[in-house]
Design a protein around this nucleic acid. Structure first.
Lengths: 219, 219, 219, 219
DNA sequence: GATGAATGAGTGTTCATTCAT
DNA sequence: TATGAATGAACACTCATTCAT
């Protein structure tokens, strides 16, 4: 049973395969799949998983990085195209951003787990790399903002985007309901929470950007 | 080992004692303590726990309800005292709100767990009661807002407060760092996240309220 | 809170009340109810239960004694009225016996638990008294048999009745199905077990008595 | 601590080892041993148990299937060899059957638990498979009966064998005594129950078969 | 006599991880 | 490299019984 040494590409490929499987399982269950479930679905042995990942939590981190990367990839061009007018920019960004979030549906369920998972079992370098990836995305977006017609100061751009991301995260948490409860969302008093997440997100981001851009520090 | 029949107060007291212990353990570990850990720390037997709580998850709910209730209790009077001027109101509320949040330090770590815990093991009525408690708090605050000098429409008040709460939740999640990582917050690139949560919260809430109140639907 | 010393009647009354409640619960669940369930349904405190019963298992014994006594009470007169002719007696007894069993529906579920319960937690005297009660019933019936027109020898009567009782017990066990399985009883191959217990019992007892009475040792 | 991949035989072997241990513990205590007791006695870890069994109850099912299979395996050849004469056949079968039952001593204690265990924790397919195995055994024996010199109708064979099995089950329950009580079996009044199970079984089965075969529906 | 708070040993099951092959 | 058998600590929860009041 001779197996040739894997080169980096092959290594990356198998890692990607496992991630794809894990992602699919997460989408189905909205919970982090067990290692056992992942390897079964991927058709490999348990030990093989640990050749690609140091621990179960690394899967989570990789998944979240991917999703966050996808969001940034969609948001940066949208930012670059923003108009100079504050109100128009707020309108346009909030709409594009809400769309981008809707297009990466697992991002928020994953992000909501960050703190509890990170605390658990990750080696420091992995945690660091993960957080640094978030920063990189944030700064890429802030850079686009400073180069856009809005010419927003980089530091203020970071702050605004951090708040935007926070609002997104928080709104999702506030409006997400256990399936068992959803049938009660139509009646009082829970109907207060019966809001379309995407619409709500757009409005909230609009208010936030409008409030910020009306007196911004320009570059 | 006195075991007289407990009246309601004593019953509540014992429950409160267990909650206090659970709260302390939560503060230490930032995870929901096991029943075993709670009863050991409280110096009672396993079964005693189940005289006060139907399940482990009920502890979480009780803890969160307490914290949320404390926040509402602090926020409602602050709202009632808001001035009519939009900017002044935004300034004043954001400051008072950030203080109130800072005064209930476990509220946000607990709230961040809501969705994962609720799904787990709670009977529907308990889940419902919990969510309805949140609504009640939100509406009490919105009522205060409509009676304040701002005279904000009740529906719009609810929406604003929901966003405020979402922003709070999300900001905490974004800025909270595992203890192991905190030492790296001072250096680039993670220093982007090295923001005082309270200050950041105040600023974000200010921007949100300012953006909203500048064109409000008055009552 | 003065409570007068209970006399024997009052004592027996409360014991009977608890038994009635326990019986009702058993009928509902087909499992031995917990002490907690019994006292809750009876409206007394937990400790009160232990004033009437030495252990949970004593309830089981008492329940079974009652049911068995009821069966014997119905069977003895039926035996006394049996005709001298073997075949006629077999026919008549099997019919009356099956009816009597059907009239005490909890007897068999209870009896099926005997061995596992008795092993568990009963003091020797209680076990003895219980088994002696069974003997007494058996012998009362055998006596009736020896005085009947059949004039069956007492020893042989005991043996026949023991076999009859065994067949009853065994048939019930063989034909009783967990509720979840009952829907499969109509299709092959499980339809082999889809027999009306009462009919089957009558036929089996008839065969047993016919085979025995055709060459009996008469008194 | 060798852990090579197991083939089917080895897998079966490990399962069989656990079953052997469980069987031994059952023989000692006459109760289903806890998983904890099984793995301790087998010298393996808790998790290892669940590599071979899906639940604790599966052990019970496996044990009972083995024992029942052994009984059928001994009874079918005995049936095939039965003579055509009713009385001779009854004599011969009852003797052989009682011997076969005596040779599988845990069958009856296990069988007596069937209903309570099945209800508990078994998935429907497992329950079904178990009951179907019983049917298969019963029908194999009935087939042998129809092919024997007796030429008994298949349906009537099933009915007779079902009664035979029921009688066996019931007699065992009636005559089995907790160990603590056995010393009292020699004195009145309990000496009524002081019967050798094997002898009693033979006589009862003889009576049953004689009564049935004297007017059988032949094939 | 009556109460019911307190007990705690015991239960079956899960699952991330390891390491001999 | 790849495997998957083995591990075992951890988990929430039950319930018959006791005994101070």
């Amino acid at each position: 049973m001779a197996r040739p040494t894997l080169n980096d590409d092959e290594r990356a490929l198998r890692r990607a395969q496992l991630l794809t499987v894990a992602h699919a399982l997460f989408r189905q269950t909205q919970t982090l799949p067990s290692v056992s479930a992942i390897v079964t679905a991927a058709g490999v042995a348990k030990g093989t998983f640990y050749l690609s990942f140091g621990s179960k939590e690394e899967v989570f981190v990789a998944l979240l990085e991917d999703s966050f990367g996808a969001l940034i990839g969609a948001v940066v061009p949208a930012i670059a195209a923003l108009p100079a007018d504050a109100q128009a920019a707020a309108e346009q960004f909030s709409a594009r951003f809400a769309d981008a979030v809707a297009a990466t549906p697992d991002l928020l369920p994953l992000a909501g787990m960050t703190n509890s998972v990170l605390e658990k079992n990750l080696p420091l370098p992995t945690m660091l790399a993960f957080k640094q990836g978030l920063v990189a995305g944030l700064e890429a977006a802030a850079l686009a903002l400073s180069h856009s017609a809005l010419r927003l100061d980089q530091a203020e751009g970071v702050a605004l985007l951090l708040r935007t991301w926070s609002m997104t995260l928080g709104l999702w948490q506030a409006l997400d309901f256990p399936i068992a409860l959803r049938s009660h969302l139509k009646q009082a008093p829970l109907n207060v929470f019966d809001r379309d997440f995407s619409v709500e997100l757009r409005q909230a981001v609009y208010a936030l950007w409008k409030g910020t851009l009306s007196q911004p520090a320009r570059r």
